[in-house]
């Protein structure tokens, strides 16, 4: 009993709702188109460049011809190195934060620290890597310095994902094990970690994707403009896909001439990174569907 104008008011309220829903759907559509647009565009321009030679040869004729094999190898080494640094440290940190730590100042500091670390710009990580690993520890511009820098860059991502995975393990699992007189560490290593493993793995894969695509952190710490030889030790410089795109697209005298190579390299990088991300997404949804607790 809201008086007479109810009907026209109701109409107006539904019009507002309709307009709002329209705007919201439009925004979602634009975001989708943005992603598809970028991918389709790179595919359209880049697919011709992707040949067996492109993937397996070194750059030639001052990088105007040839392939990107050293950059693929370099990105592989850097990424694997980064995950070797970040995964154990990240998982252990997450175990401490979820399983051992009690509320208090110490844990608060760690949490704020992890959050702030996650927010440090990638170029600042690059500066840090330069100042600490390259100069102070005298690693020089090398796989080692680059992998460490990238590893610390993705550490917060790994910690976050591992924490989430650990928190998703039901408390009853822990209680059941502890009630059987099993020690805390054994409970964690035998019960909690195996249950959380798929989630941790997803996080690790996402971390790989992130590390493979980063440019700024390796610019001063690992990436070489050009090398024709593959690295023989962790103290060697390497080429890397993201840096190679940047170099071809901005430096040198043949920018227009090497466009096909740029598109091709970008396509390889994007296929690599999005492929890795897609694996993580699919894995996660499979895990969620299978979960029975």
């Amino acid at each position: 009993m809201n008086g007479q104008p109810t009907h026209s008011l109701m109409k107006w309220r539904y019009i507002k709702q309709g307009v709002f829903f329209g705007v919201v759907r439009f925004a979602a559509l634009i975001i989708t188109l943005a992603l598809l647009g970028i991918i389709v565009f790179l595919l359209a321009h880049g697919w011709r460049a992707i040949t067996w030679d492109f993937l397996t040869l070194s750059p030639m004729d001052s990088m105007t011809k040839g392939g990107i094999m050293p950059a693929i190898v370099g990105t592989f080494y850097l990424t694997v190195g980064a995950i070797i640094v970040a995964l154990p440290l990240g998982v252990v940190s997450a175990i401490y934060l979820t399983e051992y730590a009690k509320q208090g100042l110490f844990i608060r500091i760690i949490r704020v620290g992890v959050n702030c670390l996650a927010g440090v710009p990638s170029v600042v990580f690059g500066l840090f890597g330069l100042g600490f690993f390259v100069v102070f520890l005298k690693f020089g511009s090398s796989i080692l310095a680059g992998a460490l820098t990238l590893g610390f860059l993705i550490l917060p991502t790994i910690i976050g994902a591992a924490e989430e995975a650990l928190k998703a393990v039901p408390q009853t699992f822990r209680e059941a094990s502890l009630a059987l007189g099993v020690s805390k560490w054994r409970t964690i290593s035998r019960i909690v970690l195996p249950s959380a493993l798929p989630g941790i793995l997803t996080g690790a894969i996402l971390g790989v994707g992130r590390a493979a695509g980063e440019t700024a952190p390796i610019m001063f710490t690992a990436a070489a403009f050009f090398t024709s030889v593959l690295p023989r030790s962790v103290f060697d410089e390497v080429m890397a896909l993201p840096y190679h795109i940047y170099v071809l697209a901005t430096a040198g005298t043949h920018i227009e001439q090497t466009r096909p190579l740029q598109y091709g390299t970008a396509l390889v990088l994007i296929a690599l990174v999005l492929g890795v991300d897609l694996v993580a997404i699919v894995l996660r949804s499979m895990v969620r569907r299978k979960k029975r607790w």
Partner: peptide, 15 residues
């Protein structure tokens, strides 16, 4: 889609 968008390497967006 949004997760993939987050995963796009910045150098590719710059390019």
């Amino acid at each position: 889609i949004i997760e993939l968008l987050a995963g796009l390497p910045s150098v590719v967006l710059g390019f």
